Simulated scan of single mutants.
Amino acid sequence: MGDLSREQEQAIARSTMYLVAVLLSILMIFIAGLFLSAELDQQALQKAETAQHIAVQQEIAPQAQHPWTPWRRHADQET
Rank of each mutant, 00 (worst) to 15 (best):
M1Y: 10
M1A: 14
G2F: 06
D3V: 06
L4Y: 08
L4P: 05
L4C: 10
S5A: 08
R6H: 14
R6S: 09
E7N: 03
E7I: 05
E7G: 05
Q8Y: 07
Q8H: 11
Q10I: 09
A11E: 15
A11Y: 12
A13R: 14
A13F: 01
R14K: 09
S15K: 09
S15L: 12
M17K: 14
M17E: 09
M17H: 13
Y18I: 10
V20E: 11
A21W: 04
A21K: 09
A21N: 06
I26C: 02
I26D: 09
L27N: 11
L27K: 06
L27R: 15
M28A: 13
I29G: 02
I31N: 01
I31S: 04
A32H: 05
A32F: 06
A32C: 03
G33D: 04
G33P: 00
F35K: 14
E39I: 15
L40R: 15
L40Y: 12
D41W: 09
D41S: 13
D41P: 00
Q42T: 10
Q42A: 14
Q43P: 01
Q43L: 09
A44H: 12
Q46P: 01
Q46E: 15
Q46G: 03
K47V: 06
K47I: 03
K47W: 00
K47N: 12
T50F: 06
A51N: 15
Q52E: 01
Q52T: 14
Q52H: 11
I54Y: 06
I54M: 04
I54P: 01
A55E: 02
V56T: 12
V56C: 10
Q57E: 07
Q58M: 04
Q58K: 15
E59R: 15
E59L: 10
E59I: 09
I60E: 04
I60V: 05
I60M: 06
A61C: 06
A61P: 00
A61N: 14
A61E: 04
Q63I: 01
H66S: 08
H66Y: 12
H66I: 07
H66G: 00
W68L: 11
W68Y: 06
T69V: 02
P70V: 00
W71T: 10
W71F: 07
R72L: 02
H74P: 02
H74A: 09
D76C: 00
D76P: 00
Q77D: 07
Q77K: 07
E78V: 01
E78G: 00
T79Q: 12
T79G: 10
